[in-house]
């Protein structure tokens, strides 16, 4: 592993960690359901970045890309289902603010 590669790995890792912190903070602090999904999306972006980075430094870019593509497909389905659930919540409660959702059972 060359010095340049090591440097690039560390720089991308720093970027990934920072995006992860932003995503976690976004999920923890927000009361809006759509913004919570946006936070989740930021977290999956970090995972994608680390997968590709791992493939790059170990020379297995093909395998990393295959896994990243699988992750992206799953991500789309999760977001589509979550958006549908949010629309249902909005239809029943006329709000997507978590603080105002009083009639959830359980």
């Amino acid at each position: 592993m060359t010095n340049d590669m090591s440097q690039l790995f560390w720089m991308c890792s720093i970027g990934g960690i920072l995006v992860f912190i932003i995503g976690i903070y976004c999920i923890l602090v927000t009361f809006n359901l759509i913004r919570a999904i946006i936070g989740l999306e930021l977290l999956t972006k970090t995972v994608t970045l680390f997968l590709i980075l791992a493939g790059y430094v170990t020379g297995r870019t093909g395998l990393a890309q295959a896994l990243a593509i699988t992750l992206i497909v799953i991500e789309v389905v999760v977001i589509a289902i979550a958006a549908g659930v949010i629309l249902c919540v909005f239809r029943h409660n006329k709000t997507i603010d978590v603080k105002l959702l009083r009639n959830i059972k359980g």
Binding site: K45, L49, I52, L53, Y56, T61
Partner: peptide, 13 residues
């Protein structure tokens, strides 16, 4: 992120 992935030799992803 797509630009970064392209630079990390993963064009299809």
């Amino acid at each position: 992120l797509a630009i970064l992935m392209f630079r990390l030799c993963s064009p299809i992803a």
